[in-house]
Design a protein around this nucleic acid. Structure first.
Ligand SMILES: [Zn+2]
Ligand SMILES: [Zn+2]
Ligand SMILES: [Zn+2]
Ligand SMILES: [Zn+2]
Lengths: 151, 151
DNA sequence: TTTATAAATTATAATGATTGTAATTGACAC
DNA sequence: GTGTCAATTACAATCATTATAATTTATAAA
């Protein structure tokens, strides 16, 4: 944990930004809830537990900054809110998501399954790929079981 | 064009919805601007040219309805607005997008490049895929040329 | 230690997209 | 014609996000 905070601190410093207490509190929340896909509001409420005086606008600005530095990725699953997702250590690309249409759960796929596809896009369309967003919508293992039982 | 309107009319009827004049005007706009990725507001302004008395809320509701019937797909490229995209005729899945980070242009890929990936997701993760969203962010052919020239 | 300067934050207001509501209209069946 | 129900309109309300001005904090020079 401290190691990762330290790394993020360095990333900020390398662009002459500081790791202020508010930013650190925000990053800690993101680290603690790494499995989740929190909205700005949710991050705000969790940060408030550590640092009650923080303002929502600061959380937005911090998430925006972390987003520019590619420390977090901003993603939208189709409900009205943006969600913020820590990049896995050393990942070149954003990871993929499996969103269950039944229960709303979100699973992550860290493996980059798109190498071949990106090559095609690059070669056949002449499009230089920098990043991607891939989300599958469907039914998770758990919900499949439940459907099988009730039928 | 009339053929496609007709087909959509049937799709609505099959769920006991009607193709009202407002809905038809909205669908016509979507057909005429099929290449674009219009926001609700943009659709509204274009529909207004045909049917000035239409309300914005009706456009939202119509797009929502078309979305439920899988006639259009709702997508979000990360600017604050939802955009609405007609499904290609007979397409089982939503098509893919190439968003240029330089000029903002959006290209479409109709070919389904994800068959292999979906098979992996299905087999290795036990996730039953119903649909997907795939967007590549990068630099389009045109902008690559311009960068090459100025350097 | 003061003073200056810029970055960061707070509190609050404003914006912009989207949704909800109550009243009205229109189509269709009896 | 009257009743019924879906659809629409006009408008208000909500929700996420951004902008603004005032204040604080950190850093560096004097
Ligand atoms: Zn599920
Ligand atoms: Zn994730
Ligand atoms: Zn471009
Ligand atoms: Zn498209």
């Amino acid at each position: 944990m401290e190691h990762r905070i330290d790394r993020i601190k360095k990333q900020l410093h390398s662009q002459s930004y500081k790791l202020t207490p508010q930013r650190e509190a925000t990053v800690r929340v993101l680290l603690e809830r790494e499995e989740d896909h929190l909205s700005a509001e949710e991050v705000y409420l969790l940060v408030k537990e550590k640092a009650p005086e923080i303002g929502l606008a600061t959380v937005y600005r911090t998430l925006e900054l972390l987003s520019e530095l590619k420390i977090v990725d901003k993603i939208n699953f189709g409900d009205g809110v943006s969600r913020y997702d820590l990049r896995k250590e050393g990942a070149a690309h954003f990871h993929h998501h499996l969103v269950c249409m039944e229960c709303g759960s979100v699973e992550e796929i860290v493996e980059d399954l798109l190498d071949d596809v990106e090559k095609i896009v690059q070669d056949d369309w002449g499009f230089q790929v920098k990043d991607h967003r891939l989300t599958f919508h469907g039914v998770c293992r758990q919900c499949q079981k439940e459907v099988a039982q009730t039928s």
